[in-house]
Simulated scan of single mutants.
Amino acid sequence: MSLYDDAVLVLKAYENEDGDQAELRQFYLDHLAVHPDDGMWKACTDGHVTASALVIDPSRGRVLLTLHKKLQMWLQMGGHCEPGDAALAAAALREATEESGIPGLTLLPGGPVRLDRHPIPGPCTQHLDVQYAALAPEDAVEAISDESLDLRWFPYDEVAAVADESVVRLVEATRKRL
Rank of each mutant, 00 (worst) to 15 (best):
A89F: 01
L32Y: 12
L67N: 12
D157I: 05
T125D: 11
R117K: 12
R152I: 05
K42A: 10
L107F: 05
P137A: 11
A136L: 06
R94V: 09
F154G: 08
W74G: 08
V168R: 04
K12Y: 03
A51H: 11
A133Q: 07
T66N: 13
P112V: 09
A173C: 04
D38M: 07
W74E: 07
A143L: 14
R114D: 06
R177E: 10
L11I: 08
K69F: 01
L54I: 08
K42N: 13
G19T: 11
K176Q: 15
I102L: 04
D30L: 01
R175C: 07
K69H: 10
A53F: 01
E82C: 07
V10N: 03
E142Y: 11
H118Q: 12
A161M: 09
G39Q: 02
L107H: 05
A87H: 10
A13W: 02
P112H: 09
P103T: 06
L135S: 01
L3K: 02
V10A: 11
A51W: 09
L3A: 03
L105A: 11
V130W: 10
A136W: 07
L115A: 08
F27H: 11
T45E: 14
L29E: 07
D57E: 15
P36I: 10
A163G: 10
Q126H: 11
S148L: 04
A133Y: 08
W153D: 02
T50W: 02
A86S: 12
M77T: 05
S100E: 04
L71D: 12
V130P: 08
A96G: 06
D6P: 01
A7D: 04
R175H: 00
G101M: 03
H48M: 04
S59D: 15
D146C: 03
E172N: 13
V113R: 09
H31E: 10
D30W: 02
V113L: 08
A13R: 14
M77F: 01
V168N: 06
D6N: 15
D150I: 01
T66A: 14
A7G: 04
P137C: 11
R169P: 00
E147P: 00
R117I: 04
L9P: 00
V141P: 00
G78V: 09
L108F: 06
S100D: 04
D46G: 06
L75H: 04
A134I: 12
G111Y: 08
Q131D: 12
T50D: 06
